[in-house]
Design a protein around this nucleic acid. Structure first.
Lengths: 335, 335
DNA sequence: TTGTATGCGTTATCAG
DNA sequence: CTGATAACGCATACAA
C-alpha cells in the first residue's frame, strides 16, 4: 500500500548499501574525484555495482545541490527557417567551451509569440533570439538573459546585427544601377530586425526624391509571396527592383517573375536577406545581404558567460555584407 | 568570508519570513492551492511580498520534490532541415495536452553523431528522431525513450514512416512512364530512413531487369549536389530520372540541369523526398514523396506519454504519399 | 486557518 | 582512507 512495489529508481544510497560503503564514497567515486582518497579496489567495486544496478544520477538533486544545471535555453521564433541553426551552432560552440549545453525552444505562432511558457525545468540562463520585445519580458524568470537581434535594452546584454546598414547597402547598390521604382517586400512577422530595415528603407528612399518606393507585407510562405507578387508585377508601373526580408521570399518573387515571363536580373532585380544555401544555387544566383548569424550566437553565449561571471557587456552590433551575385542588373529601359 | 555578501536568490522561506507566515503557507498560496485553506488576506499578503522580493521558484528543488520536470527532450540530427520543425510541432502539440513541454537538441555532426552529451538537466523523457542507432543507445540515460524514424528495436516504442514504400511508389511512377536509366541520389548521412530507401531501390530495380540503376552519395548541400550532378549528367548514358533523398538535393539537380540546358520534366525527370514548402514553388514544381512528419511527432509524444503511464506501444509505421507535380515526364526518346 | 516536520537525492565538509 | 552529517529549496501529510 505504501508504494513498496512501485518501480523505484536506483539512488546513490542504494549503490552504497549494496557495495557496502557509505553514500559519500559512492558520490566521490562516481564523480571521478576518488584518486588518492579511495582505495582502488573500493572504487572499482562501487563502479561495478553502480553499473549492475543501473544507477542513474538524479539531475534535479544534483543541480539543486550544485546551484546550477549547466544548460541554457536558446529561444527562437521558429525552426522552419534554417538561420537559427547557425545561431545555435555558434552558441553551442562557445557554450561547450564553458561547460554549458544548449537546448532550443521554438516560440512559435502556436504559442502566441509572447506568451512564453515559463520553462519548467532548471536553467542557467536564457538567450532570446529575434523575438518580439513583449515576449522577452515574460521569459526572464529571474534568469540571466541575453538578447539577440532585438532592440537594445539598457541593462540587458544585447547583440544585434547592423541589419539597417545591410538595407542601406542594398538600396545603394540598386540606385547606383539606376533603379527608381523599388519595392520592399516585408516580413509580416513582428521583429525588431524587420522594423529596423523598414525604417532605413523609408528613410533612404525619402532622401532620394526621384525614387518611388513602396512596400508589401507578407508571410514567409513562398507560395503566398508568389501569388501576391504576380499581382504587383502585373501592374504597368511595376517596381524594377525588389528587396526581400528573407531569401525564401525572394524565391517567391522568382516564381512570380517566372509565371509572368519576366527575366530576373534583366526585367526585374531582386535582393534577399540571409544568404541561405539555396541563394547561391537558384538561377540566376541571388544577390543577398549576408548576416553574421554564427557570430551572433557565439557572441551571445559569450555575453551570457560574462553575465554569469558578473560582467554586463555593452550592447554590440555586428556588420553585415552584401553578397553580389546575378539577380540585380541595370534598370531595364523598356517597361 | 562565508559568502554572506554573495547575491543570494530569494527562496520561499525568505518570502515566508517577510510575510510573517510559514513556508508551507507560501507554497500553498503560490501554487494556487489556497482556496478554502488560507485566509484571503493572508494569501494576498504572501503574493505581494513574493512579488516585491522578486521571488522565483527553484525548478531544481521543485522537480526533485515532485519527481518530474514536465519537459521532454526532442533530439534531432540537425536544425538546418526544416522537416524537424514539423516533427517538433506535432510533438509539442500533444505534449502540451499532457502537461509536457518540449525542448530541442540538435545532435549535429560537430558532436560526432553518436557521442551524445548526456543531458545534464532533469528530463521526463527523450524522443530521438532520425538518429543513428549507436547514438540512441548512448542517450537513454535511464529515461523513458521513444524512437522516431529509426529501425524498430524490440522493447522500445518506435514510430516510423513507410519511407521504403515511398521509394517503391516513386520508382513505379517512373517505370510506368518508361524510364529505364534511373539514379538514386542518396544522402551521405547515415540514417535508417536512407538505408531503407536504398534497400528498396536496389531491390525494386533488380526485379525490373531492364532498368539500369545506379546511385551516388552526397551531402545535403545543394552546391555540392549540383557540381557532382553536372558530371553525371554530362555522360552519354546519363540517367533519365533521378530520385533524391531530399528536396534540397533535388534543387541541386535542378541547378545542374539548368547549367547543362536540360529541361526538367522533359530531358530529365526528378523526384524528391519531404515535400518542403519550396517544392511546390520551383519551376517546374517538384514531384516528391510527402512524409507525415507532423504525425510522426505527435504519435511519438503520445507513445512517450503512454510509456510514462506504463504502456509500451507497439511499433507503428505511418504511410507516405507521392505528390505528383510537373518534374516527371515520359522518358525522352532523343537521349 | 495555519504551522511543524519530513524527505526528495545530491555534494561537500569534517571527524574519525 | 572512509563514514556521518548537514544543507540545497520545495511540497505535503499531519498536528494544532
Amino acid at each position: 500500500m505504501n508504494g513498496n512495489d512501485r518501480a523505484r529508481t536506483i539512488t546513490a544510497t542504494d549503490v552504497a548499501r549494496v557495495a557496502d560503503v557509505s553514500q559519500s564514497t559512492v558520490s566521490l567515486v562516481l564523480n571521478g574525484k576518488w584518486q588518492g582518497r579511495i582505495r582502488e579496489e573500493t572504487a572499482r567495486r562501487v563502479m561495478t555495482t553502480a553499473d549492475d544496478l543501473g544507477y542513474r544520477i538524479n539531475q534535479s538533486a544534483r543541480s539543486l545541490r550544485l546551484g546550477s544545471t549547466g544548460t541554457v535555453l536558446l529561444v527562437v521564433p521558429t525552426l522552419v527557417n534554417p538561420v537559427f541553426a547557425t545561431v545555435h551552432a555558434g552558441a553551442a560552440r562557445v557554450g561547450a567551451q564553458n561547460g554549458l549545453g544548449v537546448v532550443v525552444f521554438p516560440l512559435g505562432a502556436e504559442d502566441g509569440f509572447g506568451l512564453f511558457p515559463a520553462p519548467r525545468h532548471a536553467l542557467d540562463g536564457v538567450i532570446a533570439c529575434s523575438l518580439a520585445a513583449e515576449a522577452v519580458s515574460n521569459l526572464r524568470a529571474g534568469l540571466p538573459l541575453v538578447v539577440l537581434d532585438d532592440a537594445p535594452t539598457p541593462g540587458t546584454p544585447t547583440v544585434t546585427m547592423d541589419t539597417g546598414g545591410g538595407m542601406a547597402n542594398a538600396l545603394a547598390h540598386l540606385t547606383a544601377l539606376g533603379h527608381q521604382r523599388i519595392m520592399h517586400l516585408r516580413a509580416e512577422r513582428l521583429a525588431w530586425t524587420f522594423t529596423r530595415r523598414a525604417e532605413v528603407f523609408d528613410q533612404c528612399t525619402l532622401s532620394h526624391p526621384y525614387v518611388i518606393a513602396n512596400h508589401l507585407s507578407c508571410s514567409f510562405m513562398p507560395a503566398e509571396v508568389r501569388d501576391r507578387m504576380v499581382q504587383v508585377l502585373s501592374a504597368s508601373n511595376r517596381p524594377t527592383a525588389v528587396i526581400c526580408d528573407d531569401d525564401n521570399m525572394a524565391m517567391g518573387v522568382y516564381a512570380a517573375a517566372s509565371a509572368l515571363n519576366l527575366i530576373i536580373g534583366e526585367d526585374l532585380s531582386v535582393i534577399g536577406f540571409n544568404d541561405l544555401p539555396a541563394a547561391a544555387l537558384v538561377s540566376p544566383p541571388l544577390t543577398t545581404v549576408r548576416l553574421p548569424l554564427g557570430e551572433l550566437g557565439s557572441r551571445g553565449m559569450q555575453a551570457l558567460v560574462d553575465l554569469r561571471n558578473g560582467a554586463v557587456n555593452e550592447p554590440a552590433s555586428l556588420l553585415t555584407e552584401l553578397i553580389i551575385r546575378k539577380s540585380v542588373g541595370l534598370v531595364s529601359t523598356g517597361t
